[in-house]
Design a protein around this nucleic acid. Structure first.
Length: 578
RNA sequence: GCGCCCAUAGCUCAGCCGGAUAGAGCACCGGAUUUCUAAUCCGGCGGUCCCAGGUUCAAGUCCUGGUGGGCGCGCCA
């Protein structure tokens, strides 16, 4: 695939004198026009001629060169101001289809990352609070970016920056001291802790002494004393992590490092000194700040130390950032965090800029839009949340019902439950990665539980159908290894667009990773499946002339590989039947 | 008040860092199954690409100014 584009580019380059690297080939609006397109407008000024004339002229010149090898011919066709190129169909099919199937799970793998580190800060739930639908986005966006970078030869490092520090732990400890006995924290920790947290806020309004107890508890925690408070904190952390892990397992997500804010506790002092040493800090209203108005007019300063000398969120994040740079010398450090924290990351980067650290551009805030309910914002304290586990459970239930309806034999078999899990969870994950990450989303049950149209199950179903054809080919003795027939590539002439799409998979991964935008991949998969389904609705694969069947099976197999790989990148299972 | 982000079909969204006639899904209407799984496919309906200027051979895409919505704005995280 790449080969054809390169040949075209070098040919244009030698005919026009333009650097081949600067030439960008497009996709013709209408696939019947050709496989690649080059608009000639850009040459008009230089050659002092009208674009259509240039196109016609270039077509003649290029055909002489690109057509020289009759067995690997590329045809140049001038269409108005455009120069379109049509690759030899058999060559294209062979190169793309065999390329994908022989590479298999490694299709699209490159070493362009050179083993460079990509730090991905993702998920980051808060201890003692439930994971809700809002946490899903960070987790699966981060996981998808992880897999894509890995495929491109980078060495990703995922870090779960658990929210395990801060004044809210004082509140929790105080609440447990008071009413802990009334709740069964061990049995079902998260709801119990949530209830305690909510109760603290309710009762603290009437009883201010509670706030003081909370502050005292947090002071003890911060002091480093290994007493009762710390023991409680440690226990809370362990219980919560065990709960989170259940969800991570269902989502197929793992972390290289689980480092909460507390992990950076002993690095705060050195971090402050490091920043102070560059002379960018100053005193303001008794607090220690870094002024950022030189970065952007009226930008709020970064607060590093409160009046009372204690540290803040930004201080701890700066400590984390330096720690990560020192440890990994990352090529990119991706913060997969909601767009509501945009300013916070601009401030962190602003401090790096003022310190004149040249690696500042490598720190990127991969912001995503807010999840809201039809009634308004999510709020843990107000109880306006949709628990992630409930969403997954309901989706799996729904999937089981659909399978029982559409495929009763499968539902009754050993793996019926397993496939329901894969389809249900897949629907949720795919749905969340479907749109551009920056867009806000309103959580709607009927939308996330939809299995038709542009959904995860649609893609999974397409994959299952392809697998089914391959299974049947095996049974009838028509599979490639069995029949031994040479593919007659003219039998897939009607699938040109589809073949080109398959060839574009590696590039899709590349741009999705570069833009930190997995939706490029979900959209690609939806388009690919639409093309595949449409194609085989009209083209019979099995039982045709051996050469025809061989060629079409090659297409089916390549499509199967690409869909399966793409889903794997997203963390969505690809069942072979459903 | 200030800053950042978003705005494309009734609804939810694509639109390949400026190119050819703006595309899907849902919903609605109609059609396809003795055929490799109908979670599918085919057709129809549906557009002042928020508004006004500007840049350009070319603007949904870039710039400026508005409008509407979201988010944020010094001792919370």
């Amino acid at each position: 695939m790449q080969r054809f584009a390169t040949r075209i580019r070098t040919a244009i380059a030698s005919a026009t004198g333009i650097d081949a690297a600067e030439l960008r080939l497009e996709r013709p609006r209408d696939a019947s026009l050709g496989d690649f397109a080059f608009p000639c407008f850009v040459l008009a000024k230089q050659l002092k001629a009208a674009p259509p004339a240039i196109a016609a002229d270039l077509a003649d010149k290029l055909n002489a060169e690109l057509g020289s090898d009759p067995s690997d011919r590329i045809e140049a066709i001038a269409t108005g101001p455009y120069l379109n190129f049509k690759v030899d169909g058999a060559r294209l099919a062979e190169a793309v289809l065999f390329g994908a199937t022989t590479a298999g799970a490694d299709y699209g793998r490159t070493d362009e990352g050179g083993g460079k580190n990509i730090v991905i800060d993702m998920s980051s739930p808060n201890i003692a609070k439930p994971m809700h639908v809002g946490h899903l986005r960070s987790t699966i966006l981060g996981a998808a970016l992880y897999r894509m970078h890995e495929l491109l030869g980078y060495r990703p490092v995922s870090i779960n920056h658990i929210g395990d520090w801060g004044s809210q732990f004082g509140k929790l400890v105080a609440a447990i001291d008071r009413w802990g006995g009334e709740y069964d924290i061990q049995a079902d920790p998260i709801p119990a802790l949530l209830a305690l947290y909510v109760r603290f806020h309710d009762e603290a309004e009437a009883e201010p002494a509670l706030e003081e107890e909370a502050r005292a508890a947090f002071r003890e925690l911060e002091s480093g004393v290994d007493g009762q408070v710390r023991a409680t904190w440690r226990q809370l952390t362990e219980l919560s992590l065990a709960e989170f892990n259940k969800t991570y397992e269902r989502l197929g997500v793992e972390f290289d490092l689980v480092r909460g804010e507390a992990w950076y506790e002993d690095k705060l002092q050195s971090t402050l000194e490091r920043i102070e040493a560059t002379g960018v800090t100053e005193e303001s209203d008794g607090a220690r700040i870094v002024d950022l108005t030189s970065i952007r007019k009226k930008m709020a300063p970064c607060l590093l130390k409160k009046t009372d000398g204690t540290t803040l969120y930004a201080t701890r994040d700066m400590a984390a950032l330096f720690s990560r740079w020192d440890e990994f010398a990352f090529e990119r450090c991706l913060y997969v965090v909601g767009s509501d924290q945009k300013l916070h990351f601009e401030q962190l980067k602003g401090v790096l800029k003022r310190m004149q650290l040249d690696w500042e551009p490598r720190v990127e805030h991969v912001a995503f839009g807010m999840m809201r309910l039809p009634g308004g914002k999510l709020s843990t304290r107000a109880g306006k949340v949709v628990f992630l586990s409930d969403v997954l459970d309901r989706a799996v239930e729904e999937a089981a019902a659909v399978i029982a309806d559409k495929n009763p034999d499968l539902a009754a078999s050993d793996h019926g439950a397993e496939i329901a899990e894969q389809v249900g969870v897949g629907a949720i994950v795919f749905n969340d990665l479907k749109r551009e990450r920056i867009k806000d989303v309103v959580f709607q049950w009927d939308e996330v539980l939809s299995f038709e149209g542009e959904t995860g199950p649609y893609v999974q179903y397409s994959h299952a159908r392809l697998c089914s054809i391959l299974r049947k080919a095996e049974a009838s003795g028509e599979a490639p290894g069995q029949s031994g027939a040479a593919p007659d590539w003219s039998a897939v002439d009607d699938a040109r667009g589809l073949i080109l799409t398959l060839g574009r998979y590696p590039d899709t991964i590349r741009t999705a990773a570069a833009d930190a935008e997995p939706s490029h991949l979900t959209q690609y998969l939806l388009g690919l499946c639409r093309e595949v389904n449409s194609w085989y609705a009209n083209s019979r694969v099995l039982g045709e002339a051996p050469g025809t069947t061989a060629a079409r099976l090659a297409l089916v197999d390549a499509a199967r590989v690409v869909v399966r790989n793409g889903l794997a990148m997203l963390g969505v299972a690809a069942p072979t039947e459903m």
